Computed example of a mutant assay.
Amino acid sequence: MISFKDLNGLEVDLSFGHSDFTIPARHVLVVLKKDDKWLLTRHSLRGIEFPGGKVEDAETLEEAAIRETIEETGVTLTAVRKIAEYVVHDTVPFCKAVFTGRVLGMDSQFEKRETEGIVWMTDDELNHCNTLSFHMKDAGMAAIRKWVTEHEK
């Protein structure tokens, strides 16, 4: 388990593999790399970030990861799998499940609804991006990116 403070000063616990947490995940994050580029989206308020969001009623975590990726980027995934979970110890703590997968297809007619669209970035571009969302800059995100790079070749 990795513990760190996010940029808002909140304690965060990150676990790879099986869940070590008693709080059930109700949020998802999708971290995907294809052809040495990361799949990202541009949020109008927060900036560049990985796709993700809340799990809807009667939806599994995997279904939410697939749906959120399509809604935010127009990318359809296959071989989706959970790689980690993290808990943010906010006033009301919450748990987010982290997924990865492979690109099955991209909608060429994708309509920007929830975000300002898709962004593909290399490691270097991501490391030097000055418009990243705050949560893309913490130690947990660095650990997640490292895990995906090492395990998803």
Rank of each mutant, 00 (worst) to 15 (best):
E125I: 05
L39D: 00
D20M: 14
N130S: 10
E56S: 13
A139V: 07
D107E: 03
F99D: 06
V148H: 04
D123R: 08
A58T: 15
R46V: 00
T100M: 11
S133H: 04
V12R: 11
L39S: 03
F16M: 08
E116A: 01
I118N: 02
E49R: 12
V103W: 01
D138L: 08
G47S: 03
R42D: 05
T115R: 02
T122W: 02
L45R: 03
F134T: 14
T149F: 02
I66Q: 03
G117R: 01
W120I: 11
A139H: 11
C129K: 03
E85L: 11
M141K: 07
E56L: 15
L77K: 10
R42E: 03
R113M: 00
L126H: 00
A58S: 15
V80M: 07
I144K: 01
M121K: 10
H135N: 00
A58L: 15
C129S: 06
V119F: 07
E152S: 14
L40F: 04
F21G: 08
K34Y: 04
A143M: 14
A139E: 15
S3L: 05
K5H: 08
P51K: 02
V148N: 03
E150V: 09
D6I: 02
E111H: 04
K5P: 12
K34R: 13
P24D: 14
A79Y: 13
V98F: 04
F50H: 07
F99T: 03
E68T: 07
C95T: 15
T78I: 11
F16V: 12
L61E: 10
E68Y: 02
R145A: 05
V87Y: 00
D36G: 06
R42M: 05
P24S: 14
G17W: 10
V31M: 03
C95R: 12
V80H: 12
G52K: 08
V119A: 03
K137V: 00
C129D: 03
L10K: 14
H151V: 08
I118E: 00
G105K: 13
E72K: 12
N130K: 12
A143Q: 15
E114G: 03
R26M: 14
S44K: 02
P24V: 12
N130D: 08
C95L: 13
E62T: 15
K137I: 01
V75T: 09
D35S: 09
D124S: 13
L104E: 11
R42I: 00
M106G: 10
K82M: 12
A25M: 06
T122Y: 06
N130M: 05
K112D: 01
R145M: 08
F4Y: 15
F110K: 02
